[in-house]
Every structure is written in C-alpha cells, then in structure tokens.
C-alpha cells in the first residue's frame, strides 16, 4: 500500500551530506585537527615507551585504586597480550581509546552538568543522546568517512560520538541526585552558583560521574574495534583481517586481546569510582 507514497528521505540525506562535504569541508578538517594531534601524541607516547614501563604504570594504577590482586591481573593480561604478538596494535587501540575518552570528558562533563542543573537543556539533549546510543554503529561510519575520510582519526571521531552519551547522562544524573537540601544549605550560607557547583554538586556527583567515565571507556573500546572497518588501526584490524580471510585463529587471539584490555581498563576505572564512593 505504500508503493506510491515512499518518502525519498535517503536521497535527501545523501544530497545533504554531499552538500555539507562540498561546502564545509574546511570546517570538518578543522575539527579533525586537534583530534589528530592528540591521537598522534598518545600513539607515539605509548608505542615509544618500553612495554614494561606501560605495564608498570597500569599495575601501579591498579594497585593504587584496588590492590595487589588487580595489579597482578593487569600485569599478567598485558604480558599475555604482548606474547600473542599484539603489543603495538594494543597500544594503538589504547591511544585511540584515551584520545576519544579525553574528548568525551572535555565535552561530556560540562554538557552533563548543564543538563543536570537545567531541565530545558536536559530535554533538548536527551533525544540526541538517544539517537547517538541507539543508532547502529555501522550506520554513521558512512557519513564519517565522507566528511573525514578514512583512518585512525576518522575512527576516533566516530568513537567520540558513540561513547559520549554515558558520561553526559551519568554526570547529569549525579548532579540531580545531590540532595536539594544540601544545595539549599549552601545557598543559605551565601554560596554563589559556581560555589554550589564546585563545592557541593561536583564532589557529591563524582562517584556517578566516574561510573559514567567507566561506561564511556568501555563503549569507546567497542567502537574503536569496529572503526577498523573504516581503516582505523589497532586491534580491530587483525579481527577484520581474520574475518575477511576466514583466519579463525587470528580473529580469536585478537578478540582475546581486546577482551583482556577491556577487563583491565574496566576493573581499574571501576575501582576508581568505588574508591571515591567511600
């Protein structure tokens, strides 16, 4: 019954994106620039450090926020990844995750704070967050490629969009969960809005914000792997290669490395949030 009533939305969108690319390419290149620099910095840093230093840093973080158990688990996992032959790929993935999480935090925390303090902001950004989280990740790889071409930077940009919602949502939630009487008390004692934010709302929302950070890191890791489809490097590449050549062994050991890295990052950031909760 819909044969003659089809809306050519796909055509419109295609022409809109084409129009964007034609007219605003410079602007998109401008957006790319800081991401490119930061990513390059992380990538170079992590890959030029001797592996045992990286392992030591991770183990120290694990020990600091949790204890010896997690420190041992992290070290063993990283050693295993190295012995599987994926050290460089893992460092590239880690650099991409760190770069995207950095931008997610820089943009997401202030947005979340604004949404937490102002209902109108919350109402406006909520549909965008829903769209960002539910759109299948493959779908926006296409416009990303058109706007930013392929490679690691495009992959990180796609990851930023995909991984930002949790930190915005949980920052907003954390701010909203601060008991209104505490805000009232601060105001009654002469706090400015800024003082209410930095002395009451943010400290009390911190555990929830860190839980959001943990979620964002996990989602970034998932997306960075998928971004291999648009030519991003790192642990995603061997998976895609294994898929294309039906090399099951390669795909599985690359997958195992991803899982280990994910577990290490998850446990460390979770214990960070837990530590702050006490």
């Amino acid at each position: 019954m819909f044969e003659d009533k089809i809306i050519p939305l796909d055509v419109w969108i295609s022409s809109f994106v084409e129009w964007l690319v034609e007219n605003y390419r410079e602007i998109f290149q401008l957006i790319k620039w800081p991401v490119e620099k930061i990513l390059a910095g992380f990538d170079m840093g992590l890959n030029s450090l001797p592996p045992f230093i990286v392992i030591l840093i991770l183990a120290f973080c694990a020990w600091r926020f949790s204890g010896w158990g997690l420190a041992l688990f992290s070290s063993l996992s990283m050693v295993l990844i190295g012995m599987l032959g994926f050290w460089e790929d893992t460092m590239t993935t880690l650099a991409m995750v760190l770069a995207s999480v950095l931008f997610c935090t820089i943009a997401g925390v202030p947005l979340g704070i604004a949404a937490g303090r102002n209902n109108r902001v919350e109402i406006i950004i909520r549909p965008f967050l829903d769209a960002m989280q539910t759109t299948p990740s493959f779908v926006y790889l296409v416009p990303i490629v058109m706007l930013f071409s392929v490679g690691n930077v495009a992959g990180v940009l796609a990851t930023i969009i995909f991984a930002m919602p949790p930190i915005i949502r949980l920052t907003s939630l954390g701010i909203r969960q601060v008991h209104p009487e505490l805000v009232e008390a601060a105001l009654a004692f002469g706090a400015t809005r800024w003082q209410v934010l930095v002395k009451v709302q943010i400290p009390l929302a911190l555990p929830t914000i860190l839980a959001g950070l943990n979620q964002t890191i996990m989602m970034a890791l998932a997306m960075v792997v998928i971004a291999a489809l648009i030519g991003a490097g790192g642990l995603g590449s061997p998976v895609v290669l294994g898929l294309n050549t039906l090399d099951i062994g390669l795909a599985v050991i690359a997958g195992l490395s991803i899982v280990l890295l994910a577990m290490v990052l998850d446990r460390i950031t979770q214990s960070m949030a837990g530590k702050n909760n006490q």
Binding site: H179, A188, A191, P203
Partner: peptide
C-alpha cells in the same frame, strides 16, 4: 547571607564529603 544570616535545617543538611570541622567551617569557606 554570608555575613548576617545562617540557617539550621530539619534534615541537618550536612555535607557528607566534608569532616565535622569542614562542615562547621563551611560558611567561612564560602
């Protein structure tokens, strides 16, 4: 509010992330 008036609340409304001393000093900190 800083200088002339303070307030005591039914639910106490103490800052859970601050020590007793820091709570008592809250108005002065502001």
């Amino acid at each position: 509010r800083l200088k002339n008036m303070s307030m005591v609340f039914q639910s106490f409304a103490l800052m859970p992330h601050m020590t007793v001393l820091e709570n008592a000093a809250f108005g002065l900190e502001l």
